[in-house]
Computed example of a mutant assay.
Amino acid sequence: MNRRDLFRISTAMGLTVAFPGTGNAKPQTASGAGDKHAPAKLNPLHPPAEGSIPVAFLLSDGAVVIDFAGPWEVFENVSIPGSATQLAFKPYTVAETAAPITASGGMTIVPNYTFATAPPPKVIVIPAQSAPSEAVLAWIVNATRTADLTMSVCTGAFLLAKTGLLSGSAATTHHGAYTQFAMEFPDISLKRGARYVESGKLASSGGLSSGIDLALHVVERYFGRTVAINTANTLEYQGQGWLNPDSNLAYAKRRVSTDRHPLCAVCDMDVAKATAPTSVYRGRTYYFCMSAHKELFDASPARFLVG
């Protein structure tokens, strides 16, 4: 999945700082006491007395593979001491219809369930994907009512925001979509440079691999730090972004476009100056990674020049 495809998806919707050594990390309690990267407060989630936690992965055409496959592997590999056979989480895919879905890179996925047949989820994962229908938005709203947590990954935040559930709350998304997200949803507090953001029963992560960190954080909220670390070790995942929601600070400040190294005025993506679409606004030339972003800019140039 390349960045150009990613932003085509975000446009259609209406639109690392690495800490090595997780495998050697010292297990802590769920409170994170003594860990300098631990969140100030861990809001625990409560697993059922018996049975697995159902996790619904909402998919449609264009779903970005790492956005859902990364968290899927996290939830699938959670092992609880003293429970050798029971799965802690039960992930499944759900879509508006049972028709095969074409994900990023051409992967074909047959959903496990439709909205009509899916079991009620306790965790909902919304990756970047195509523009949602009214039925998709309605399912998110209805399923969230009884879920413990609804989380978006990357530009999946656009889908979650379109439900209205995030209104008045904070959220994050892929760093290349910050400007567009802030413009489209002014009633949501956009957190630049956040690996993930929690807002009550809702959570959002930054781009792509950030979903793995949010999923590990969710595991910690249910089962504590030791189980989350053991899960990361099983996956041989060395990132520690899940221990520090502010670990995306490399993306907190917007990149500066120059005449020598121009960036897309909408998403900050590097562009080829000789071939990129351009617009002139107030005597200055602006470059774009694709025609769709030029069209967005041309409709309201001044809004893209703030922040």
Score class of each variant (00 low, 15 high):
M1P: 02
F7I: 15
I9M: 13
S10I: 07
A12T: 01
M13N: 09
V17G: 09
P20G: 12
G23C: 11
N24D: 15
Q28V: 14
A30Q: 13
A33V: 06
G34K: 11
D35M: 05
K36S: 13
H37T: 03
A38H: 07
A40Q: 13
L42H: 08
N43G: 03
P44E: 12
P48N: 13
A49N: 14
A49E: 15
A49K: 15
S52M: 11
I53P: 04
A56R: 04
L58S: 03
L59R: 01
V64A: 10
V64G: 01
D67Y: 08
F68N: 03
F68S: 02
P71V: 05
F75P: 02
I80C: 10
P81T: 06
G82S: 10
Q86M: 10
L87N: 14
K90V: 00
P91K: 06
T93W: 06
A95G: 10
A95C: 10
A95E: 05
A98I: 11
P100C: 08
P100N: 08
I101C: 04
T102S: 12
S104E: 09
V110M: 11
V110E: 13
N112V: 02
N112S: 14
Y113G: 02
Y113A: 12
T114P: 03
F115M: 03
P121M: 08
I124H: 03
I124V: 15
I126R: 01
P127S: 08
A131E: 12
A131T: 12
E134P: 01
A143Q: 14
T146N: 15
D148P: 10
S152N: 04
S152V: 01
V153S: 02
A161D: 08
K162T: 12
T163D: 10
L166P: 02
S169W: 00
A170Y: 02
T172K: 00
T172Q: 04
H174L: 06
H174Y: 08
H174D: 04
H174G: 06
H175R: 08
E184T: 14
F185W: 06
K191M: 12
R192P: 02
A194K: 04
S199F: 13
G200D: 12
L202K: 05
S204K: 03
G206Y: 00
S210F: 02
S210M: 03
I212T: 14
I212H: 05
D213Y: 06
L214R: 03
A215S: 13
L216N: 04
L216H: 07
E220D: 05
F223K: 00
N230P: 02
A232E: 06
N233M: 06
L235M: 15
Q238S: 14
G239D: 13
W242S: 05
N244W: 04
P245Q: 09
Y251L: 05
S257G: 13
H261A: 10
H261I: 07
L263S: 00
C264W: 00
A265M: 04
A265S: 13
M269T: 09
D270N: 14
D270E: 14
V271Q: 04
A272E: 15
P277M: 10
P277A: 09
T278I: 13
T278Q: 14
S279H: 09
T285E: 12
M290K: 09
S291D: 15
H293E: 11
K294I: 01
F297P: 02
A299T: 13
S300E: 13
S300D: 15
R303S: 14
F304D: 01
L305Y: 03
G307H: 11
